[in-house]
């Protein structure tokens, strides 16, 4: 107990409490009004649907005007028929499964490599100076450039494909983590230290969660890179042993000179890329931003 606290306070305790409660009520930020879910979804979904409709319409008009021969620009309906055929025959499941499971496995391995790498770059000066520029450089090197080397090293198999995916995704994820960690306000690790954080608990409880928004950006980019690297690899490295993925399907379309098949392939690759972004990364990012009150970033 403090020795003889005899100070006379001008305002008595209960009064101070009510002044404080009043201040709390007045100063608390007002939470923004949230519209109904139906309207919110409509407001978000309608513009892209409209854009797609306009795009298809222009395509239809161009095709009907017959500017280009049929083997260069297919009719929208012909492309739709190709896709519908894949759906009816169930072949689409195999295409999706082959490509998506490769991308997911490749992405997961990339994550396992990139997180320790990013942590090392961000926290150890020598590693940052030595490896940092290398990782940034690799990020701007198109990973397709590794396809020939990968085929020579591993042969035409899944390992060659994973190698290319890894080189596409690891630098993006690692760089995302580094920039996320660099943007952590310096006061937070200091506070953590004052609260008794050790080296590891500091990383686990302070640094990683604080870096999460930047890291998520890196993950998103890493996914995009791993998906496009995979498609490039599948397109170039085609062999019956590899199973038929979307890249292979696209390649077959080219071999058969079937432009509607080529368009269908491009469309399906696009749909998977955008779908994963919309179904996985966007909600993740939104919930992280909203929890931190960064609502202007929520889309």
């Amino acid at each position: 107990m403090p020795p003889e606290a005899t100070r006379v306070h001008p305002v008595d305790d209960r009064d101070a409490g009510s002044v404080e409660a009043g201040l709390d009520a007045l100063d608390t930020p007002v939470t923004a009004y949230r519209e109904s879910p139906v309207r919110r979804i409509a407001a978000r979904a309608l513009p892209p649907i409209g854009a797609i409709a306009v795009f298809v319409l222009i395509w239809q008009v161009l095709w009907a005007a017959a500017f280009w021969p049929e083997f260069k620009l297919p009719a929208p309906v012909a492309v739709w028929d190709q896709i519908w055929q894949l759906v009816v025959s169930g072949e689409i499941l195999e295409l999706f499964w082959t490509s998506v499971h490769r991308a997911v496995i490749g992405f997961a391995i990339s994550l396992l490599i990139a997180v320790p790498l990013g942590l090392a770059i961000a926290n150890i000066t020598v590693v940052r100076r030595g490896v940092g520029p290398l990782v940034s450089g690799l990020q701007s090197l198109p990973s397709v450039a590794w396809v020939p080397a990968a085929i020579l090293w591993f042969g035409l198999n899944d390992r060659a494909i994973y190698w290319v995916v890894l080189l596409g995704a690891v630098p993006s994820i690692a760089n995302g983590l580094v920039s996320g960690l660099d943007q952590v306000p310096p006061i937070l690790p200091r506070v953590g230290q004052a609260l008794g954080a050790g080296r590891w608990s500091g990383i686990r409880y302070i640094l990683l969660p604080a870096a999460l928004p930047g890291f998520l950006g890196g993950l998103k980019q890493g996914w995009a890179f791993s998906w496009r690297s995979l498609m490039a690899a599948e397109l170039i490295a085609t062999s019956p042993d590899l199973g038929e993925g979307l890249g292979q399907y696209l390649h077959n379309g080219m071999s058969l000179s079937d432009i509607s098949m080529v368009f269908a392939g491009i469309l399906l690759i696009f749909v998977v890329g955008v779908g994963i972004e919309l179904l996985v990364f966007r909600p993740l990012e939104n919930s992280v931003l909203r929890a931190r009150g960064l609502t202007q970033g929520v889309r």
């Binding site: 937070l188 200091r190 506070v191 609260l195 409880y205 302070i206 969660p209 992280v288």
Partner: peptide
């Protein structure tokens, strides 16, 4: 300097958690 990803209670619990 509260941790923005934790609730008020989560912030108070943080040193205990560590």
């Amino acid at each position: 300097a509260l941790m923005p990803w934790l609730t008020a209670a989560g912030n108070v619990e943080l040193p205990l958690r560590m």
